[in-house]
């Protein structure tokens, strides 16, 4: 019992990661767009779980707030409106599916071939382990949010400001694009 609990606690990241992968596969494979959105939502929640298990509490919550609270709802909104029409999809997948799958597989093979040594090499398990003492740097006095905001508002202030401008531009652009032309 205890052993099991310890294992679960230790491998939390892997569990969340595998669940996220399942959600992603469901999202891509689902026939109905609403089901896709559901899969997407699940993936996002699981990714938030991954963030949490990587000691990024603030980011995990932000992930849920931004994705689950905003983006996926927008997706769902649009999907519901679009699926209102009686238009039936001719097929779920594109015509070039087979070639795409082949390309992905080749890409994955190349990727693994290049980074094989780095990832699965003999020394990798030693070099790449996430040491618990390093987590303290992320968690200044139990306040991950403070740490993140320090980084954000001191070192990366310019990107942050640029981001806000981009958000504004996106806002205006979205409104212009989606606005109905009044006849």
């Amino acid at each position: 019992m205890e052993h099991l609990l310890v294992t679960i606690g230790r491998d939390m990241f892997a569990i969340f990661g595998v669940l996220a992968l399942c959600g992603g596969i469901f999202m891509v494979a689902a026939k109905s767009a609403v089901h896709s959105v559901l899969g997407f939502l699940f993936t996002m929640l699981c990714v938030a779980g991954c963030f949490l298990s990587l000691d990024a509490e603030f980011l995990g919550m932000a992930q849920i707030l931004v994705y689950a609270g905003g983006i996926v709802v927008l997706f769902l909104f649009v999907v519901m409106l679009v699926e209102l029409s009686k238009y039936k999809e001719k097929g779920v997948f594109q015509l070039q599916t087979r070639s795409a799958v082949v390309a992905v597989v080749i890409g994955a093979a190349v990727f693994i071939g290049v980074f094989r040594n780095l990832l699965f090499g003999v020394a990798s398990s030693e070099a790449l382990v996430l040491r618990p003492e390093l987590a303290q740097g992320l968690n200044v006095a139990q306040q991950n949010a403070q740490a993140v905001s320090r980084g954000l508002f001191s070192d990366y202030l310019l990107p942050f400001e640029i981001l806000s401008v981009i958000l504004l531009v996106a806002l205006v652009g979205a409104v212009v694009l989606a606005k109905r032309e009044r006849v």
Partner: peptide, 16 residues
């Protein structure tokens, strides 16, 4: 630690 954020995040899931 981020309890307030957590609550806000979860209640935003309720809309689904």
């Amino acid at each position: 630690n981020v309890g307030v954020l957590y609550i806000l995040a979860l209640s935003s899931v309720g809309v689904y």
